[in-house]
């Protein structure tokens, strides 16, 4: 493999209403390497979901371009490029096409012309990964919120894409399940060398990602490792461990004054 990034977003802008001067996204650029994971954070309405829709070719940027694997995403190429990506949308209620859980997970595979035996094993495997195997014959509309999100996630896992995009796809899970699913994702990320983009409001999810993209009112505020981001942006609500570290420093405890992840903080405290 070459060392060109898997995904390259170059200076894209987008507005929903071209008669008005309100941009949902303006001049966004960033790269994502193979096997790298990125968390996207930002207030409500900052353009996160819009970005996800642009990345999957559901919307086209007004300016700028998106490259996947070096190929520009456009009308002609999007069908081919979509074979390499999977997305879970924000609203779990509207994502089901088929009338049973397993059929829904298989839907994407059917479209890729995967033979039956392979489909069967991929569907089962994906449902096991999200712990929904015993619900495989249920009607997705009769699941609880969190169960729906798991099924939607299985639909992407079964595809085994190179790029996975999650738009607030874990909000309805309880914290234990959320951590375990994030751990599963991280394992898949390194085993299969997939890239992950996850949009989230939960700052405590950040430790599961390699880097961070911060949006504010459609603009890129920062992109970097959590340490860099939270060092520069003191107004941004940090993960709990960092919040505590700042508090301790303010109270006069002798701690180094830079961002620390949870494990770093624990190590430092216990020295």
């Amino acid at each position: 493999m070459t060392d060109q990034p898997l995904l390259s977003v170059c200076d894209i802008s987008f507005r929903y209403d071209i008669t008005q001067d309100v941009y949902a996204l303006s001049a966004i650029s960033f790269d994502l390497n193979r096997g790298e994971s990125l968390a996207v954070i930002g207030d409500n309405g900052s353009g996160k979901s819009t970005l996800a829709r642009l990345l999957t070719g559901l919307l086209s940027p007004e300016k700028g371009a998106i490259y996947l694997d070096g190929v520009e995403l456009n009308e002609g190429s999007k069908k081919m490029l979509r074979r390499q990506m999977g997305i879970v949308f924000q609203n779990p209620d509207n994502q089901f096409i088929a009338t049973s859980v397993e059929d829904d997970v298989a839907f994407g595979l059917e479209n890729l012309n995967i033979p039956y035996e392979q489909m069967r094993s991929r569907v089962d495997e994906a449902l096991e990964l999200v712990d929904m195997y015993e619900y495989r014959t249920k009607d997705p509309s009769q699941l609880s919120g969190g169960q729906k999100q798991r099924v939607a996630l299985a639909g992407v896992l079964a595809l085994k894409p190179e790029l996975m995009i999650f738009d607030e796809a874990f909000v309805m899970l309880d914290p234990m399940s959320r951590r375990s699913i994030l751990e599963t994702l991280r394992r898949i990320q390194s085993e299969l060398n997939v890239s992950i983009i996850s949009i989230t409001h939960d700052r405590d999810e950040i430790e599961f990602f390699d880097s961070l993209l911060v949006l504010n009112q459609g603009e890129r505020v920062m992109r970097g490792k959590p340490a860099e981001v939270f060092k520069q942006m003191s107004s941004l609500k940090p993960p709990f461990a960092e919040q505590l570290r700042r508090d301790l420093v303010d109270a006069g405890m002798d701690l180094p004054d830079y961002y620390m992840s949870e494990s770093e903080l624990v190590d430092t405290l216990c020295k």
Binding site: R53, G57, L58, R83, I97, F107, G108, G155
Partner: peptide
């Protein structure tokens, strides 16, 4: 949104 899902899943 369902149309979007079908689209992205390459139907």
């Amino acid at each position: 949104e369902m149309a979007d899902v079908m689209d992205v899943k390459n139907y």
